[in-house]
Computed example of a mutant assay.
Amino acid sequence: MSRIGKLNIPIPNDVDINYENFQITIKGKFGILQTHIPKALEVIEKDKILTIEVKENIKNVKAIHGLYRTLINNMVIGVSKQFEIILTLNGVGYRASVTGNELILNLGYSHPVQISIPESITVEVIKNTTISLKSCDKELLGLFAANIRSWRRPEPYKGKGILYKNEQILRKAGKSGK
């Protein structure tokens, strides 16, 4: 039995949970999320507390017990509070802007980079160099932030690139001349 899988999930008052046919749907003020639950796991809701029980003691089921508990907990937190990732652009001339459904980045290339924004993600540009990403789906938010960051990874010599908030880059010393 997983230590994390045994933990209970508290359900806020503004969150509705529906579990039918091994499909869990969670509704809140920031959106609706759903996922498929394996047949070997059972979701039980009692007094605004959610627990995940193991029906069969098989090695693979024990391994995914904690995973699905964490996934459901992230869904509950996402629809009630939302997740936020803040990216910072470090570099001369690096800028970001949002026009319509696209994020436009000027990252030192000969052309601006245009990235289409998924429907469930809210993008806000603060001070031209700070991008705030918000969504109820933690997995989609992380993938979108990684996609943005992949255009200019932070480099260790000057520290230029797209960084997560409070990220520390290990700096290297450059060439030492004569």
Rank of each mutant, 00 (worst) to 15 (best):
residue 161 G to Q: 04
residue 44 I to V: 08
residue 21 N to E: 01
residue 49 I to N: 14
residue 25 T to H: 06
residue 148 I to M: 09
residue 59 K to W: 03
residue 56 E to F: 11
residue 148 I to E: 13
residue 43 V to I: 15
residue 20 E to P: 04
residue 63 A to N: 10
residue 114 Q to E: 15
residue 41 L to V: 04
residue 127 K to F: 07
residue 102 E to L: 08
residue 3 R to H: 15
residue 127 K to L: 13
residue 95 R to V: 04
residue 43 V to T: 09
residue 150 S to P: 00
residue 35 T to C: 12
residue 60 N to Y: 13
residue 99 T to C: 01
residue 87 L to G: 04
residue 35 T to P: 02
residue 94 Y to D: 12
residue 116 S to D: 06
residue 121 I to C: 06
residue 135 S to A: 11
residue 5 G to M: 12
residue 163 L to R: 06
residue 134 K to N: 04
residue 4 I to W: 12
residue 79 V to R: 03
residue 105 L to S: 08
residue 118 P to I: 00
residue 29 K to N: 09
residue 67 L to V: 06
residue 1 M to D: 10
residue 132 S to W: 07
residue 156 P to H: 12
residue 30 F to S: 00
residue 116 S to T: 05
residue 151 W to G: 05
residue 57 N to E: 14
residue 33 L to I: 04
residue 61 V to W: 08
residue 38 P to I: 00
residue 125 V to K: 02
residue 44 I to D: 10
residue 25 T to W: 02
residue 81 K to N: 10
residue 173 A to P: 00
residue 122 T to L: 03
residue 126 I to L: 14
residue 50 L to K: 00
residue 125 V to H: 00
residue 34 Q to P: 03
residue 46 K to L: 01
residue 5 G to N: 01
residue 133 L to N: 04
residue 42 E to S: 14
residue 161 G to V: 01
residue 44 I to N: 00
residue 37 I to G: 08
residue 171 R to A: 12
residue 161 G to C: 00
residue 75 M to N: 09
residue 164 Y to A: 02
residue 116 S to R: 02
residue 23 Q to I: 12
residue 133 L to Y: 06
residue 140 L to N: 07
residue 39 K to M: 09
residue 51 T to K: 15
residue 58 I to W: 05
residue 50 L to G: 01
residue 37 I to H: 03
residue 100 G to V: 00
residue 153 R to W: 00
residue 70 T to W: 05
residue 93 G to R: 06
residue 60 N to Q: 14
residue 54 V to E: 15
residue 170 L to K: 14
residue 171 R to T: 10
residue 11 I to P: 08
residue 34 Q to D: 10
residue 33 L to Q: 15
residue 18 N to R: 06
residue 88 T to I: 13
residue 130 T to W: 01
residue 153 R to L: 13
residue 82 Q to H: 03
residue 35 T to A: 06
residue 140 L to T: 10
residue 27 K to Y: 11
residue 60 N to S: 13
residue 73 N to E: 13
residue 22 F to I: 01
residue 173 A to F: 12
residue 139 E to D: 03
residue 16 D to K: 14
residue 135 S to R: 02
residue 102 E to Q: 11
residue 95 R to S: 09
residue 111 H to N: 08
residue 19 Y to G: 02
residue 12 P to F: 11
residue 64 I to W: 01
residue 126 I to H: 08
